[in-house]
Amino acid sequence: MEATVNTQTEEENVWGGGNQPLGASYGKMMMWFFIVSDALTFSGFLVAYGFSRYKFIDSWPIADEVFTHFPFLHGVEAPMYYVALMTFILIFSSVTMVLAVDAGHQMKQKKVAWYMLFTIIGGLVFVGSQAWEWATFIRGDYGAVELRSGRILQFVDAQTGKRIALDEFAQPIEDERVVHLERNGVWYQSGEGLPSYTVNEIKAGFMANENVVGRAEKLNEDGEKIMLSREETAERLESAVHVVEGANLVRNEYGNRLFADFFFFITGFHGFHVFSGVVINVIIFFNVILGTYDRRKNYEMVEKVGLYWHFVDLVWVFVFTFFYLV
């Protein structure tokens, strides 16, 4: 019955405005089409990541070795647990959001406000977690050496195959470059940042410690990094040009340079979406408290920001899979 009535009104004033051929209001429809275009943007990024990864399929960093940290558990290898927790936080904030929309349909102002508040808190916790993840990624933990080819050489224990941090074997040499401090001159001087150790100190440490060998970027058939012999390592160390600690946009200790670039760009762009989602949620939250939608007699605005918020969750599901799992 309802459908027949609708068709009639549509036929009456097709060009007169006021009809909804797709059964959705203008605002909701535009939110959806924005989401479609944003989804294409994100898939562009993720596919570009896949492209670069296929290009260097036999030397790409292993995510399980990179993201091994969990807050307050220092030194414990906990791959994936932290991102899994972040995923849960975001999914749960999506649930409170959909509960807010549901309460809005029933015009329960108080309930909407509370659920919106929980959603905002969930979003803030997620952004905070991501900041922590970035900080850990940027700091790094073992350090590595970059060769003239731009490839990364990491160090492992020859017996156990466990990673060795630079400060466990490097031999400090006196009288090398020092950091320019402000008290030595107030004018600005630009120059390369100074890592904790120089290439020569690493080389000396390598010569002095028999059980240190290198590990190149290449993977074997089981997807593990190939360990080098003492001679091969010494040969590669000859062409070492940089000591790399942690990650920045130019080089990172984990391996291929593109890896950190994509990590910063994709998770950063997603984090920016979460942040803007929180801001929009806060605005709508205040409108709910002020009773704007109660007077308007519909809570469709909550539904629209809800769509955006779920989309952010949806994107994270894909980022989680392609960055951490696959």
Binding site: A24, S94, V317
Partner: peptide
Amino acid sequence: FIILTIVKAYYIAWSFMHLEGERGSF
């Protein structure tokens, strides 16, 4: 992993974003 991700995406879009309730053309 990829199939499970698509399953999750389906539930988020269909249920949370309420696509299941929209008109077919939309």
